[in-house]
Simulated scan of single mutants.
Amino acid sequence: MPEDQQVDETTAPEAAAATDDLDDEIRDSDESEADVEDDESEDDESDDEDDSEDEDSEGDEGSGGSGRKGRSAKLIALDEEGDIAADYLEELLDIADLDGDIDTFTEGGRAHISIVTDANLLVGKDGEVLEALQELSRLAVMTETGKRSRLMLDIAGHREKRRAELTDLASDAVEEAKASGEAVRLSPMNPFERKIVHDVVAAAGLNSESDGEEPNRRVVVMPA
């Protein structure tokens, strides 16, 4: 058994109960998660637009125009999202009796939360628990602010590792599409993963599109 999953026999009942509490929190989000999924799929198409808006705001800020106030207000709102989500996740960690350091930062027009921990329990198979915790965090922010959140959550570096894997996968698909002259269909992915692949394909000078319905929506890499 991996070291980070070992539990002292004297604390096993308490740890099990805490984990059950966390599972209940995640199950309670299932109905809301279905509603958020449709919005999340739109992020594939809106990320570039949002990033462009951020660049425009930075230009206004540098010129001392009205964009300065808008940019500052947006950063303040994102900082608030991060703080709300961090407090919520810290409570969940306490309930589950799990250790983890929580970092918050803003990047690409989103609030980002990173939990530094060795507990893979919070990631789950194929990141399923991570995705559920991200939706719970977004719902916690929406409850407090009344606005939909696009914050990103990473736990134990899972997303960064996945990003590296998908970058390699997308690069291979690009080479295959160029060599064969045929479209390459990749395995189903979540919106976060599809966005990474789209970016790699675009950087290589090819086009890609998303095809299918969730949860079987996938990226198709088109030949030149």
Score class of each variant (00 low, 15 high):
residue 60 D to M: 05
residue 47 D to M: 14
residue 60 D to P: 00
residue 63 S to L: 08
residue 56 D to I: 07
residue 63 S to P: 01
residue 44 D to A: 08
residue 59 G to Q: 11
residue 44 D to H: 02
residue 53 E to D: 15
residue 52 S to K: 12
residue 47 D to P: 03
residue 35 D to M: 02
residue 52 S to T: 14
residue 36 V to K: 00
residue 46 S to E: 15
residue 60 D to F: 08
residue 40 E to G: 00
residue 56 D to S: 09
residue 53 E to W: 04
residue 38 D to C: 06
residue 57 S to C: 03
residue 63 S to W: 00
residue 37 E to Y: 01
residue 41 S to R: 14
residue 41 S to H: 11
residue 66 S to L: 10
residue 42 E to K: 09
residue 36 V to S: 03
residue 50 D to M: 09
residue 51 D to R: 11
residue 41 S to M: 11
residue 64 G to M: 02
residue 65 G to D: 07
residue 35 D to N: 02
residue 35 D to S: 07
residue 61 E to W: 01
residue 66 S to N: 02
residue 42 E to I: 07
residue 35 D to Q: 04
residue 58 E to A: 14
residue 53 E to S: 09
residue 53 E to F: 13
residue 43 D to E: 07
residue 50 D to K: 13
residue 41 S to P: 00
residue 55 E to Q: 07
residue 42 E to T: 12
residue 45 E to P: 00
residue 48 D to F: 06
residue 59 G to T: 15
residue 51 D to H: 04
residue 51 D to Q: 09
residue 61 E to G: 01
residue 37 E to K: 10
residue 39 D to W: 01
residue 47 D to Q: 14
residue 50 D to H: 12
residue 45 E to T: 14
residue 55 E to I: 03
residue 58 E to R: 14
residue 61 E to T: 06
residue 54 D to I: 15
residue 38 D to Q: 05
residue 48 D to N: 11
residue 59 G to P: 01
residue 61 E to D: 01
residue 56 D to E: 15
residue 46 S to D: 04
residue 37 E to Q: 07
residue 47 D to F: 15
residue 45 E to Q: 10
residue 56 D to N: 13
residue 37 E to G: 02
residue 54 D to R: 09
residue 60 D to T: 10
residue 43 D to W: 05
residue 43 D to T: 04
residue 49 E to D: 05
residue 44 D to G: 02
residue 48 D to R: 11
residue 55 E to P: 03
residue 66 S to W: 09
residue 59 G to W: 06
residue 39 D to E: 08
residue 53 E to G: 13
residue 43 D to F: 08
residue 39 D to V: 08
residue 51 D to P: 00
residue 53 E to R: 12
residue 47 D to R: 15
residue 63 S to Q: 03
residue 53 E to C: 02
residue 48 D to E: 15
residue 55 E to N: 09
residue 54 D to N: 07
residue 44 D to N: 13
residue 40 E to C: 05
residue 43 D to L: 07
residue 35 D to G: 04
residue 47 D to E: 15
residue 52 S to Y: 08
residue 35 D to T: 00
residue 58 E to G: 06
residue 59 G to V: 14
residue 52 S to V: 04
residue 45 E to M: 00
residue 49 E to L: 11
residue 61 E to K: 02
residue 65 G to F: 03
residue 64 G to H: 07
residue 38 D to T: 13
residue 41 S to T: 09
residue 58 E to I: 12
residue 40 E to K: 07
residue 42 E to R: 13
residue 66 S to M: 02
residue 60 D to C: 03
residue 57 S to H: 12
residue 39 D to S: 08
residue 48 D to C: 00
residue 65 G to C: 06
residue 37 E to P: 03
residue 58 E to K: 10
residue 55 E to F: 01
residue 66 S to F: 02
residue 38 D to F: 04
residue 49 E to H: 09
residue 63 S to I: 07
residue 47 D to T: 14
residue 50 D to V: 14
residue 66 S to R: 08
residue 40 E to P: 01
residue 37 E to V: 03
residue 46 S to L: 12
residue 66 S to C: 01
residue 54 D to V: 13
residue 53 E to Y: 14
residue 63 S to D: 07
residue 35 D to A: 04
residue 64 G to R: 04
residue 57 S to L: 15
residue 46 S to N: 01
residue 39 D to F: 03
residue 61 E to R: 04
residue 40 E to D: 12
residue 59 G to K: 12
residue 66 S to Y: 03
residue 41 S to I: 12
residue 55 E to C: 06
residue 59 G to S: 14
residue 56 D to M: 14
